[in-house]
Amino acid sequence: MATAGPVLQEHGRSGQWRGRLLRGLLIGTAVLFLGLMLLVPLATVFAGALARGIGFYREALIDPDALAAMRLTLVTTALVVPLNTLFGIAAAWAIARFSFRGKNVLTTLIDMPFAISPVIAGLGYVLLFGAGGWFGAWLEERDVPVIFALPGIVLATLFVTFPYVARELIPLMQMLGTEEEEAAISLGAGGWTIFFRVTLPKIQWGVIYGVILCNARAMGEFGAVAVVSGHIRGLTTTVPLQVEILYNEYNAVAAFALASVLSLLAVVTLVLKTTIEWRTGLRGRH
């Protein structure tokens, strides 16, 4: 007994030390990788944007084309996010509360934009609404521009950001159950009262969380929008498209300046998202 104790202890200590080393190594690799792949490029964006001083940076941002791009992005987002929020709440309600035929099909359809490349989505809209598309001639007769105009950009963005709110709410509503709503029914409440007084407050943080993710994606979308926009400067270029145009014209500083706006937006989103996770205990679900 007298000898066994220390031997065991020594063995344990060396095992512990090895475990700690392994852990350190893994964490180190992850941090290094993230730093190289994520933080360094982000930092270069800001460094590049400020390469010719703050004056040039400001000028690049108040350039009329840049301002038009920002306006277009904001208008698109302002249309897309509320629409997708409404859709997301409705879809989540239907899926979490009712059982009906084709429920699985609906769930799969909601997830489809995750699986399909945005470029293909954009192409689909061009084939539908473009000059030679199915509805192209009909739309042209009535002088309703879709492709290479705002409606096309909104449609493409809608498609890509379709799942964000719904995907956030479906598991949340399933987890929270329907007892509170049933209690409200038994107390005599009607449908709208139940929705606004009971259901919405219950899922509000989930909605906000989904809206933030949807918003970030709507502002940053490139692929689908690139196909349907036609890159008409000052008219149909969103911020990501404008960044690409400037970069292709070797106007790197202006490109970086606009890119930094998007990056800032990303940082703000990240902070909001983390705050909400912290507030509601949703942490760890994404």
């Binding site: 007892e179 049933e182 209690a183 029914i185 219950k202």
Partner: peptide, 20 residues
């Protein structure tokens, strides 16, 4: 409809409105 029946219902898991 349930609202026209005028009953009180108590659930196993209380079902209180958590935000109120």
């Amino acid at each position: 409809s349930p609202r026209e029946r005028g009953v009180g219902f108590v659930f196993q898991h209380y079902a209180l409105f958590r935000n109120m």
